[in-house]
Design a protein around this nucleic acid. Structure first.
Length: 657
RNA sequence: GCUGGCGUGGCGCAAUUGGUAGCGCACCUGUCUUGUAAACAGGCGGUUGUCGGUUCGAGUCCGACCGUCAGCUCCA
């Protein structure tokens, strides 16, 4: 084993040779594939001074850590470019994010798209200058002097240690010693500097491919009470090709956007006359909705739930009893005053189910008591957050509530999670993970005792962990009445949406005075488990549209089969075939328009119908049809009875074709 | 809600420095129709999101509102 390492500060004529007793890997490569080292397990940039006995491993630019370093370094280049072009710009923070980076600036005028192009040019100049990133440890006081003109950085220095990791400030300031990164020109003069924890690439020339993508406002440290800074987003990659590929991926993803596909496929619309966040389902979207509802109603009944019905509005007192009104009045539609009472559109169904539970005395023999309904709820989402079907103001929840004894709760939760996972599988969804939302013990938003919260949270966590799925913590994200496990899925462009939820609630049973009589004759309080399998039907449809890019498996496809005659003399023959399919429940249409066959194929293809049945003289003579599948492949001269069987079986199996 | 952008017939787009709205698809009518992604011809359809303002004159400028897009904040 070699005992010598050579670390070259790229862009410099100096070579720094460090004697160690480690691996002997060639840490610096001319092809710039290695940008950092892992020293005794910690990732450091190449300006670190190694000491005898350090264990050193190379970090490749294409590794996850390498990409993070690349993007964080690109953020520094951006910040330098901004300060070159805008003297008054004050620095916020500039962390790496998925696929890219951003940097926040306090500037007098917001950036325009032209500003971004100009900043890209400035960044290219800085990259060509091959400025070295050099780490320097400073004391708090030294940092305050050096960064006297940067009020936001001063705040970070002062709050060092108390800075929470989730506001991004950890990218600037780590626990322990403060560091400043200098950008050195070739003559060692300082071009720029920033308070930063690092690490960074050896020099700016290591950023071969980047683009600035958008600007927006962001609150300083994510707090609405703070100033709004201008956030510039960018993306950076180890090669031009990878940048191109990334941009292509975004374009492809945009093509599956459910808002665009919904209009193209005539599934749903959002007329302005209705109001923001309110969807209209057209006949084809209605098929999706109905299939989902039929499925989930049947499954609930199979799983021991009773189907119930409740009204859309209620007097306000109900929501005071449930505890919702004091917390969420501002997200409910304003009340309607009628004959001395205030009526509210409901924003949740649980209070009404509680009334059903309470409608008579309950015995322990009845538990678990499981209620289920399609509940239409209305929430006045802020104007800026409404988004297609995934964030609406009126939605339908497949909402259920299980009333159980405390002892039954773990088994019920496991039961519900299995239910949900089976449902997701049947709908072909695979890109999701679990999230455990817990309370923030320092917030007054959450009610109930510490013990109760602990029991509830532990119960949920155990079931979630046992599922073996990826589990992400969401501190402070619980409902006011209890913690929840939710399934999060990603949309076409990477945003995550909460779908199914399972919530453990010990508070509402207390508020409503829910009881059951136990075997020993005592009166006990049940625990209620809230659960929605799709979450909201609307949101789930939006996610499905994006997941399948509109090409639904046959069992969900609004039109499952379309008949296309080669010429109109075969219309009648196809109508007969269609009638056979209809008799066995297949959604089939025959295109008898004046268009040519080729045009009909094109039309059917664009509407993503899974099966085209084409009939000409050969087929009619043989009592057959010719398949054209959605992927363009063909199967000619299939006898009609076999064609019907093939289609019916694929639908029954929920197969994708 | 906040910051910035956008808003032309159902959809996608066009309209020189402000000078009385064009095109394709779809739709309607007619003539067509034989093998796997667009037959041909004619026609209907908008006063340019809404309201107000500037101007001799506004789709083009200004304001408010509505809607929408991106991000932030929020999301029982």
């Amino acid at each position: 084993m070699s005992s010598s390492l050579t670390v070259v500060r790229a862009g410099s004529s100096q070579q720094q040779v460090i004697e160690t007793a480690t691996t002997g890997l060639d840490l610096f490569r001319e092809d710039r594939t290695v940008i950092a080292v892992r020293v005794n397990g910690t990732v450091r940039d190449l300006s670190v001074v190694l000491s005898d006995g350090d264990v050193v491993e190379p970090v490749a630019i294409s590794s996850p850590e390498g990409l993070t370093i690349l993007r964080h370094s690109a953020a520094h280049v951006l910040a330098q470019a901004v300060q070159r072009q805008h003297n008054d710009a004050k620095l916020g923070i500039g962390p790496p994010i998925t696929d890219g980076f951003y940097y926040d600036f306090d500037v007098s005028e917001p950036f325009t798209p032209e500003d971004l192009r100009s900043l890209e040019k400035e960044m290219t100049k800085i990259i060509k200058e091959r400025q070295r990133f050099v780490r320097r440890v400073v004391t708090d006081d030294e940092a305050r002097v050096e960064l006297a003109d940067e009020p936001y950085k001063l705040e970070l220095i002062t709050d060092k240690g108390s800075a929470s990791a989730d506001d991004g400030s950890s990218a600037e300031v780590g626990a322990g010693e403060l560091t400043i990164y200098d950008n050195l020109r070739r003559d060692d003069s300082v071009a720029w500097k920033d308070l930063c924890r690092g690490p960074h690439v050896p020099h700016t020339g290591y950023i071969p491919a980047f683009a600035l993508t958008r600007v927006s406002a962001a609150y300083w440290r994510g707090d609405q009470a703070n100033a709004q800074l201008q956030r510039v987003y960018g993306t950076a990659w180890p090669s031009r090709d990878q940048l191109k590929a990334h941009q292509l991926r975004l374009e492809e993803a945009a093509k599956r956007d459910h808002r665009k596909l919904g209009a193209e496929l005539d599934l749903y619309s959002f007329p302005t006359e209705l109001g923001s966040g309110l969807a209209l389902f057209h006949p084809k979207g209605g098929v999706l909705k109905r299939e989902m509802e039929d499925y989930v109603r049947r499954r609930h009944i199979e799983e021991g739930f009773s189907y119930v019905g409740t009204p859309h509005i209620s007097k306000g007192g109900l929501f005071e009893t449930s505890g919702h009104l004091p917390y969420y009045a501002d997200t409910m539609f304003p009340p309607m005053a009628m004959e001395g009472a205030d009526y509210y559109l409901k924003a949740m169904n649980c209070p009404m189910h509680n009334l059903i539970y309470r409608s008579r005395g309950r015995s322990y023999r009845e538990l678990p008591l499981r209620l289920f309904e399609f509940g239409s709820v209305y929430r006045y989402e802020k104007s800026g957050v409404v988004h297609g079907l995934t964030r609406v103001r009126g939605m339908t929840q497949d909402d259920s509530h299980s009333y159980v004894t405390a002892e039954q709760a773990p088994a019920e939760i496991k039961h519900l999670l299995d239910f949900v996972l089976g449902l997701l599988k049947d709908f072909g969804l695979d890109d999701y993970f679990l999230e455990l939302s817990t309370r923030d013990p320092n917030s007054a938003k959450f009610i109930g005792s510490d013990d109760q919260w602990e029991i509830a949270t532990d119960t949920l966590r155990r079931v979630a962990v046992d599922s073996g799925l990826e589990l992400v913590d969401d501190p402070g994200g619980a409902a006011f009445y209890g913690p929840k496990v939710s399934v999060q899925t990603r949309d076409a462009i990477g945003r995550t949406w909460q779908m199914s939820t399972i919530q453990y609630d010990f508070n509402q049973p207390a508020g409503f005075g829910l009881e059951y009589q136990a075997a020993d004759g005592s009166r006990q309080q049940p625990v209620m488990i809230h659960s929605a399998k799709f979450g909201s039907i609307e949101r789930f449809i939006g996610v499905l549209v994006e997941h399948y890019a509109g090409a639904f498996p046959p069992w969900l496809a609004p039109v499952q089969v379309i008949g296309i005659p080669v010429a109109d003399e075969f219309n009648d023959y196809l109508e007969d075939v269609a009638a056979q399919l209809r008799r066995v429940g297949v959604r089939v249409e025959v295109d008898t328009s004046d268009d040519r066959m080729q045009k009909k194929i094109r039309t059917a293809q664009k509407s993503k119908v899974p099966y085209m049945l084409i009939v000409g003289g050969d087929d009619a003579a043989a009592g057959a049809v010719s398949f054209r599948y959605r992927d363009g492949t063909q199967n000619n001269g299939v006898p009609v009875d076999r064609a019907v069987t093939e289609i019916v079986e694929a639908i029954a199996d929920r197969r994708q074709v």
